[in-house]
Amino acid sequence: MDEEDFALIEQDLVSLAEALGAPDAVDDPLFRRRDVESGIERAMPRLERVREKIRALERVAALIDRRTFETTMEAIGAAADRGRPREGSRYVPESALVLGDNGEPVIDLGALPDLSEIRSSLRRLANSLEDEQWLR
């Protein structure tokens, strides 16, 4: 991979971040390292920066993935069941609202899209970038 390839990947990551509603998630200033001895801050090496941007987008996608919501609701339902008799099936919430400062619903977590395929692809891409042979 050369510099042009990395630039194209970073452009795609910016587009994906915008599509996920988190354009700031891949801003270059977030991907810097400070030298402990000198205190000088520098950009991460390009490969590491791209890999970390991919991982950041996977974390953003996890926050807005319906599967994350469903898994969380299952865990809450299971925890609530521990204190109740085993009559019938447990109640698992199908929705949860995030309220804004004015008390009005901003997001219905139960209506979020299933992003598990996107998240899986992002994880595979980040992992493949760790494989030195892939870069040769």
Rank of each mutant, 00 (worst) to 15 (best):
M1W: 05
E3R: 12
E4W: 07
E4K: 14
E4S: 14
D5M: 15
D5E: 14
F6P: 02
L8G: 10
V14E: 01
V14T: 06
E18K: 12
A19P: 03
A19T: 11
L20V: 07
G21W: 06
D24K: 14
D24I: 13
A25D: 03
A25V: 06
A25Y: 05
D28I: 14
D28H: 09
D28N: 11
P29A: 05
F31I: 06
R32F: 07
R32G: 00
D35M: 06
D35Y: 09
E37D: 14
S38N: 04
G39W: 04
G39I: 02
E41W: 03
R42D: 07
A43L: 12
P45H: 07
P45K: 05
R46T: 15
E48K: 10
R49P: 00
R49W: 03
R51T: 14
K53Q: 15
I54R: 03
R55F: 03
A56E: 08
A56M: 11
E58N: 05
R59G: 09
R59Y: 09
V60K: 04
I64C: 10
D65E: 00
T68V: 02
E70P: 04
T71D: 15
M73W: 05
G77M: 07
G77E: 11
A78M: 12
A79D: 12
A80L: 13
D81N: 12
D81P: 00
R84S: 09
R84P: 01
P85D: 15
S89W: 11
V92A: 00
V92D: 00
V92R: 10
P93N: 03
E94S: 08
L97Y: 11
L97W: 06
L97Q: 10
V106T: 08
I107C: 06
P113Q: 01
P113A: 03
L115G: 04
S116W: 06
R119K: 06
R119I: 02
R119T: 01
R123S: 08
L125R: 08
N127Q: 11
S128C: 10
S128N: 13
L129I: 06
E132K: 10
W134H: 06
L135C: 04
R136K: 09
